[in-house]
């Protein structure tokens, strides 16, 4: 079985982002970038499945500018066998990314596609579902547990009301929740070995698809600031303030 894992390069989750003064976006120059956290869960799960003898090959794919290749290199260091970098410039919407990955799926013919449930920069939570629709494959979103059976998966999904388990026949798309597993760190020897693993570079223009943005970002601004609060000396004062000043209890 072959697993394709999609990874995205985003601003590191610990960074306090800054909005550009001209309202055109968020400052990304000289800001620490990393793999999107739930994508780390996706690659970890694929590697675990391979270690359990249930997958033979893991292909990591990313779509984006030159530096996005770092995320593929990291996936290779964690255990992917081969990388694909679809080179693009500028902003991409989930619909465009899903069309690009659809092309790669048609070429690579994986049995499963894994990815994170959402990217922590655009917070869209769309790409996996869109890809699944384009391929007419089943989708298992927000996965927190995956059991591989003969020709299907049993996936436990995180839903608002609790948990839900579904069966999806292979081939299928799975979008991973942070709770799926604990991603491992790449060891130095594995990072060195990953440098020798192949990364195929593809120009998006060679795929023959329309990836023009459909959504204009007119303005990016800081959210309204909360006004500074006070520190209370003790519990009695806190309860008095909540009762008499804020009038919320």
């Amino acid at each position: 079985m072959k697993i394709l894992v999609a990874v995205k390069r985003v601003i590191d989750y610990n960074v306090q982002i800054r909005v550009k003064e001209d309202g055109s976006g968020v400052v990304t120059d000289n800001v620490k970038m990393s793999t999107n956290p739930p994508d780390d869960n996706a690659i970890e799960e694929a590697v675990k499945i391979k270690e359990a003898g249930k997958a033979t090959e893991i292909v990591a794919i990313t779509v984006g500018e030159e530096k996005a290749q770092e995320t593929v290199r990291k996936a290779l260091a964690v255990g992917a066998d081969k990388g694909i970098h679809v080179k693009t410039e500028g902003a991409l919407e989930p619909l465009a990314v899903s069309k690009i990955i659809q092309k790669i799926v048609e070429k690579e013919k994986p049995d499963l596609v894994f990815m994170g449930k959402q990217a922590i920069d655009d917070d869209c939570n769309q790409t996996g579902q869109m890809l699944s629709a384009l391929l007419n494959w089943p989708q298992a979103t927000f996965a927190s547990n995956i059991e591989i059976k003969d020709n299907f998966l049993e996936v436990t999904r995180e839903i608002d009301e609790g948990l839900e388990t579904i069966q999806v026949n292979i081939p299928a798309i799975v979008t991973c929740d942070l709770r799926l597993n604990e991603p491992r760190y790449a060891s130095l020897p594995n990072i060195m070995k990953a440098k020798k693993k192949p990364i195929e570079e593809i120009n998006v223009s060679d795929l023959g698809i329309d990836i023009k943005p459909r959504i204009e970002q007119l303005k990016v601004e800081e959210p309204p600031k909360r006004k500074a609060g006070i520190k209370v000396a003790n519990v009695a004062e806190l309860v008095q303030k909540l009762k008499n000043e804020a009038k919320v209890i």
């Binding site: 909005v19 917070d123 007119l218 990016v220 800081e222």
Partner: peptide
């Protein structure tokens, strides 16, 4: 966007 640390106006 960005965990609510920025608001985007989109058309």
């Amino acid at each position: 966007i960005y965990a609510g640390n920025a608001f985007a106006t989109v058309k």
